[in-house]
Design a protein around this nucleic acid. Structure first.
Lengths: 223, 223
DNA sequence: ATTCCGAACTCTGAATTCAGAATTCAATAT
DNA sequence: ATATTGAATTCTGAATTCAGAGTTCGGAAT
């Protein structure tokens, strides 16, 4: 009887706002972030902003620039590779667990199929729409969906900081080149393996997908 | 010419202090954390404490208790399992990468051997000393060492929040039962596989080690 | 012209203050 | 005895203020 909705604090709202600006490329690498300016821009005081900066620092999205404020961290191609390595391990785990779960609990299988296919469809449409933010958003959503299906509620949280950086890198790259053709075909294959309960295959498909994405992205970045 | 040391802020110091108290069990699950009390106890104002609470919330170590402050989060056995699943994937990845690196770069191999063996020795001594904090500390140190050896600088950061919770769980359990006999034997085997450059073996040993640790810990917790 | 020095400025971390939301508890009504 | 209501208390989020560290820039000395 109490599905309450609790109001997000200014800190949370500001965090989301700034994170999105950074990840969507509105704030370029190296941009100076001055607390007072941000505060004024968002119409709040410096206090919640300072809180936000602490979170962003923990995420590695900003760096200290003593005396000059904070800088949006440069996106380092080698770190992107590291993040993809980690995602490979996590996405593999998630796909494996999800397949096992889908294979044993017939109840969830239908739900997974329904939502999964809907995301795939939306993802394909997003690519056709050529809207970068939407393309990235659905890619993120698909993988977070698999994380959820794994039954391990911490995978999403573990990968989140990495996704922030990867969103940034993907946005950057997509501004210059189209996404790989078969990306949603790969997603669909992963989904199908999960639905078939084929843990082994789901895992290897997920890992392969991440490896290819990594290669594509780092190539485009280091050009 | 400037290997400078920058002073840790009050926020960072306070964060460390509180985190340690929670993870070492000095602050039991469900303890109330009141900002003003903490501030007084640490001899600082509420401002940095509030910052700290934000970080702790992000780590999942505390929960909001509207009107009553914050509570130290209960340690949930099912979440511990989830954390171990994640650690399995990460430790496997780290061991694999470390072995590959040790196998190809002969220079690093000696360094790894030296530091690795020293940690193993200290870990064994810690167990004989019966000092829980030291036992846990060296376990953490060994695994962080493997993470470092992997060459992927983000594995440590990715696992850190999980280690915080696992430290808590381990401390809890070790207060009632001795650690498994062969834990440092397992560590040593992992180290050796890494040194031999046997990536496949290092990975599977690391994963097996985590699985066993998970089983032991969850058994002890759910008793 | 270049380097060195210091004053003015900028920006952050920390302290203090303010306002609002939730809890607690006692008095009252049933 | 139990439930209800509302005032006092507690506690946090946010604003404001304060102090110190770092940068910038202009003038003096070489």
């Amino acid at each position: 009887m109490k599905p309450i909705a609790l109001a997000p604090s200014l800190t949370e709202q500001a965090y989301q706002a700034v994170v999105d600006e950074i990840c969507d490329g509105a704030l370029a690498s190296g941009s100076r972030l001055v607390q007072e300016q941000l505060a004024k821009r968002l119409g709040i005081s410096r206090q919640p902003i300072q809180q936000v900066m602490g979170l962003l620092k923990a995420d590695g999205l900003v760096e200290d620039a003593p005396g000059r404020g904070m800088l949006v961290a440069p996106l380092d191609a080698s770190l992107v590779t590291s993040r993809y390595q980690i995602r490979g391990a996590m996405d593999g785990l998630a796909a494996q667990l999800a397949a096992t779960r889908a294979g044993s609990l017939v109840g969830v299988k239908d739900q997974i199929a329904r939502r999964g296919r809907s995301i795939v469809k939306a993802g394909i449409a997003a690519i056709e729409s050529k809207a970068i933010k939407r393309m990235v958003a659905y890619d993120v959503e698909f993988h977070n969906f698999v994380y959820e299906c794994s039954g391990n509620s911490l995978i999403t949280a573990t990968c989140e900081p990495h996704w922030l950086h990867l969103r940034r890198a993907m946005s950057e790259v997509l501004r210059k080149a189209a996404p790989p053709e078969d990306i949603w075909k790969q997603h669909e294959n992963i989904l199908n393996a999960v639905l078939e309960g084929d843990a082994k295959n789901a895992k290897s498909l997920a890992i392969k997908h991440v490896e290819q994405a990594c290669e594509g992205l780092t190539n485009a970045l280091t050009v």
